[in-house]
């Protein structure tokens, strides 16, 4: 029973991390049908920039806020200076631009922060918390809290704000959105900023657990991408649920079956999903353009 609880806690923590990474993929795919291969780098920047601001002597709250803002700005720059510049580019061209951007961000982090790993203390103490005999790091609660915050925030954004509704309209029909006066290029920038900020927030809360490193983004992005796929690729909520499903499956498969192939669980789930429910949990069947 304690073991079960332990695996559950592990699954929720890693699932929340995957969810926080996956949301950004879904947001960008929703707005531009492109896979943003720089998403993992936004997460990395969240942690790295926090470390950087902390060494400048800023208090943690300001350092974390600064990191999220910095990532959002980088997201806006990426959209404006690179993606928007490639006129009439195909989706594949945009994907390659994001790959290039990911390398540049990794390279920039390598130049500024070196090749070592970095971390900072957990927000509420380093000692593990006892929960009915199972142990968890207190920082896990912060990760889960961030995920809840992002979920509520996204819900509010799409349901209540004009901007959110404009994003929705752009996703449904870009041409119609332009006709009714929505500034589509601005919407795309907003989506990139949001993805980057959410990714960075994930990086800020996970770094005390996972530590950070200039090449941390690549493997994280792969898992986050899987989470988004399981969620249907176009749905931010789907990505969050997808992340939790992946995290829990990995923890239980690793715990009860064998950790040897734990790494493969996420990908087996994707294959199963493609066979049985190809549109993902929350995805709409993609409409093919004629």
């Amino acid at each position: 029973m304690v073991d079960f609880l332990q695996f559950l806690l592990s699954g929720i923590t890693r699932g929340s991390i995957y969810g926080l990474v996956g949301v950004g993929f879904a947001l960008i795919f929703r707005s531009s049908h492109a896979i943003n291969f720089a998403q993992g780098e936004f997460v990395m920047i969240g942690g790295m920039a926090t470390v950087f601001f902390l060494t400048l002597g800023l208090p943690l709250v300001l350092a974390a806020a600064g990191a999220v803002v910095a990532a959002a700005l980088i997201g806006a720059l990426l959209q404006r200076l690179a993606i928007a510049q490639a006129k009439n580019a195909s989706v594949l061209t945009i994907i390659i631009i994001t790959i290039g951007a990911g390398m540049m961000l990794r390279g920039a982090a390598e130049i500024v922060m070196g090749r070592n790993f970095h971390s900072y203390p957990a927000f509420s103490g380093e000692l593990p918390v006892d929960l009915l005999g199972a142990k968890m790091q207190s920082q896990s609660l912060w990760v889960v809290a961030a995920l809840v915050l992002v979920t509520i925030g996204i819900h509010f954004f799409f349901a209540r704000t004009r901007l959110g509704k404009a994003v929705e309209a752009t996703f449904s029909n870009r041409f119609a959105a332009t006709v009714i006066g929505i500034n589509v290029p601005r919407i795309l920038i907003v989506c990139f900023m949001l993805s980057a900020a959410i990714g960075a927030l994930g990086g800020v809360v996970m770094t005390p657990i996972t530590l950070t490193h200039f090449e941390l983004g690549v493997p994280l992005a792969l898992k986050g991408f899987c989470a988004a796929i399981v969620g249907g690729l176009t749905s931010p909520f789907g990505a969050i649920i997808g992340g939790l499903i992946l995290g829990l499956s990995e923890a239980f498969a690793g715990g009860y079956i064998s950790p040897t192939y734990q790494e493969a669980v996420a990908f087996v789930i994707i294959i199963a999903m493609l066979i049985f429910r190809p549109q993902g949990l929350f995805g709409r069947r993609a409409v093919e353009r004629v």
Binding site: D3, Q6, F7, L9, S10, T13, R14, I17, K135, M206, I209, T210, L211, V218, P219, L220, A251, G254, G255, P259, T260, Q262, E263
Partner: peptide
Amino acid sequence: DEVYAQADTDMTPQFTRIAG
């Protein structure tokens, strides 16, 4: 004899098995 993936950031399932 427990293994984790090199990029993995959580080995608590492995340690839970070891404790057992």
